[in-house]
Deep mutational scan, measured.
Amino acid sequence: NQASVVANQLIPINTALTLVMMRSEVVTPVGIPAEDIPRLVSMQVNRAVPLGTTLMPDMVRGYA
């Protein structure tokens, strides 16, 4: 089972991601792999991401 990136807090739209906003968790469906967390830092979300939501590739500008 692969860990995915999950929002550690509410992340408002257009917010640049920081390490404290994300955690890794084994979830279904699988989202962005946890090993990509360092790559996600400073990328912006293109929608509001509620606490506990799995980050999907289409939620992060420039990721996919």
Rank of each mutant, 00 (worst) to 15 (best):
V5I: 12
T53W: 11
R47I: 07
V20M: 15
M43N: 06
P33N: 12
L17V: 04
A16L: 11
P29F: 04
S42R: 12
P29V: 06
I32D: 00
V45S: 07
P12N: 13
L55D: 01
T28E: 11
T54A: 08
Q9K: 06
A64D: 13
N1H: 12
A3K: 15
V30K: 13
A34R: 06
N46C: 04
V27A: 08
Q2H: 10
E35I: 14
N46S: 14
A48M: 10
E35L: 08
D36V: 08
I11S: 00
L40V: 07
L19A: 06
G62Y: 09
A64H: 06
N46G: 12
R39M: 14
L55Q: 00
V60G: 00
G52H: 11
M22A: 00
R39Y: 09
A34L: 05
A64T: 13
I37C: 03
Q44E: 13
R47N: 11
V27L: 06
Q2A: 15
V5H: 01
Q44A: 08
A3H: 13
L40C: 03
R61E: 14
V60D: 01
Y63G: 05
T53S: 15
L40Y: 02
N1I: 15
N8H: 12
P12M: 11
E25Q: 15
V49E: 02
E35C: 04
I32M: 04
A34M: 13
T28K: 15
A64Y: 05
S24A: 12
P38N: 11
Y63W: 15
R47H: 10
S24Q: 10
Y63D: 04
I11D: 01
V26K: 15
V49M: 06
L19M: 09
V30E: 05
A7I: 08
P38Q: 11
M59E: 03
N14D: 15
V20W: 15
V20G: 10
I13F: 15
G52T: 03
I37P: 01
A16R: 07
V45K: 00
Q2Y: 11
T15H: 08
A3V: 09
V20Q: 12
L19H: 14
V20C: 03
V49S: 02
E35D: 08
V49D: 02
R23F: 06
T53R: 08
L19W: 13
M21T: 03
E25S: 08
T28G: 07
V30Y: 13
T28I: 13
V6E: 01
P57E: 08
P38G: 14
E35R: 15
G52E: 05
T18K: 10
L17T: 01
A64S: 13
S42G: 15
V41C: 04
A34P: 07
T54R: 04
I13N: 11
A64L: 11
S42I: 03
L51N: 15
P38V: 09
P12K: 13
N8P: 02
T15C: 03
P50G: 14
P38T: 15
R39F: 11
V6L: 07
T18P: 00
V20D: 14
M43W: 05
L17G: 00
E25R: 09
L55K: 01
M59P: 01
Q44L: 12
A16F: 10
T53V: 14
M59A: 09
L51P: 10
Q9P: 01
S24W: 09
D58Q: 09
T15M: 07
S4Y: 04
S24V: 10
V27H: 04
G31K: 01
G52C: 03
M21W: 02
M43G: 04
V41D: 04
S4H: 02
N1W: 10
I37N: 00
T28R: 07
V27T: 11
G52W: 05
V60Y: 01
A3E: 08
Q44F: 08
I11E: 00
T18Q: 07
G62N: 13
E35Q: 14
M43E: 04
V6M: 06
